[in-house]
């Protein structure tokens, strides 16, 4: 299909091939060391792990294409999971209502992030860093005050079924991811909204002078990032069966790495849903592979940092080279 967007916004074909080769090599490597790696059980664990990173990376994709950034989603997920758990267990609220309120918390946080960043021209990473601290503290305080513990059990049939059962052999959380992937792909590649987002990222001044309400749209994108964070919160509660104030702690780096690996640049204007998902796949394989190999957790953190730097450095070096020619 000759899509007008594929010309530059997506990964270049060569990039995609390189990423696929990396993926293949990684899978082969981990399988060689431990044949359990491609066992059905591990694959299904991997898919479930991938869901959360995938959903968050999807939310970041349009946001970062439009030159925004949010790193508070980890703490936000912690808070959301705690809110849902507390409402359901301590508050005795109907499960569905609790879930909706949880999602609304995420939406609200995203909206506030966007509102502050866009109305005061703040540097997104700094504001969301501050937000991260506040949300983390809120999660801790709420959990402590109302249940005296960091993790609150949420035992309900619907959530348990959602986490464990399948729909035509596809686990429900994976199904959610698939639906979101299709929605985001459709919006970015096919619609007027998508075009507007790319235009904002390519040059916000030009976008504004084309009569586009740049600030409004960006606030909306932050709000949608909040929405997918809320969905992520529900999934983490369902899969783990607890609401915990440290749930989202190690999500920021892998998600950011995945997005950047998938060809999104901090300068905005480029990136596709397909690229992002490829990035998510690779990052998931790496970290799942490491845990299958029983690598201690501090190594994982170390690798997360290394991965981020290597990914960005690789793109940066290539860009420098391209600029020289």
């Amino acid at each position: 299909m000759q899509d007008i967007n594929t010309k530059k916004k997506g990964l270049r074909l060569s990039d995609t091939i390189i990423l696929l080769i990396i993926l293949g090599v990684l899978v082969a490597f981990f399988t060689l060391i431990n044949s359990d790696f491609i066992a059905y059980n591990n694959i299904s664990t991997m898919l479930k792990n991938m869901v959360l990173t995938g959903i968050l990376a999807l939310g970041l994709t349009p946001l970062m294409i439009a030159r925004g950034l949010d790193i508070s989603f980890g703490s936000s997920i912690s808070l959301i999971s705690v809110v849902i758990a507390l409402l359901y267990t301590v508050g005795g609220v109907n499960l569905w209502l609790a879930l909706i309120i949880g999602v609304l918390v995420g939406v609200f946080v995203g909206f506030i992030n966007g509102l502050l960043i866009e109305s005061f021209d703040l540097i997104p990473i700094i504001l969301t860093l501050g937000m991260m601290a506040i949300l983390q503290a809120l999660a801790l305080v709420l959990a402590n005050t109302f249940s005296n513990t960091y993790s609150i059990l949420v035992m309900t049939d619907p959530l348990y079924y959602f986490a464990t059962r399948t729909f035509f052999k596809i686990p429900y959380p994976v199904l959610v991811l698939i639906v979101l992937v299709i929605v985001y792909w459709f919006i970015l590649a096919k619609t007027k909204v998508g075009r507007t987002i790319y235009l904002i990222g390519a040059n916000p001044t030009v976008a504004k002078l084309s009569g586009i309400k740049v600030k409004k749209i960006k606030i909306l994108l932050y709000t949608f990032m909040g929405l997918v964070t809320g969905i992520g919160g529900i999934i983490i509660v369902a899969v783990s069966g607890v609401g915990m104030s440290y749930h989202g702690k190690n999500l920021a780096l892998p998600t950011l790495s995945a997005v950047l690996l998938g060809g999104i640049s901090l300068m905005g204007g480029s990136g596709t849903v397909a690229g992002t998902m490829l990035g998510v796949l690779i990052v998931t394989v790496i970290f799942n592979g490491l845990s299958v190999l029983n690598v201690p957790s501090y190594y994982i953190q170390l690798f997360q940092g290394l991965a981020l730097i290597i990914i960005v450095a690789a793109y940066e070096i290539r860009n420098n080279r391209a600029a020289m020619n």
């Binding site: 990473i125 997360q304 940092g305 730097i309 070096i317």
Partner: peptide, 27 residues
């Protein structure tokens, strides 16, 4: 080095080294 020679955005660079050296500290 990463910021000036390689040319990576300083926030991303130090976000990465933050994780690396925290990992090493635990190690």
């Amino acid at each position: 080095f990463l910021v000036t020679v390689v040319g990576i955005n300083s926030i991303i660079t130090t976000l990465g080294t933050l994780a690396i050296f925290r990992g090493l500290a635990y190690f």
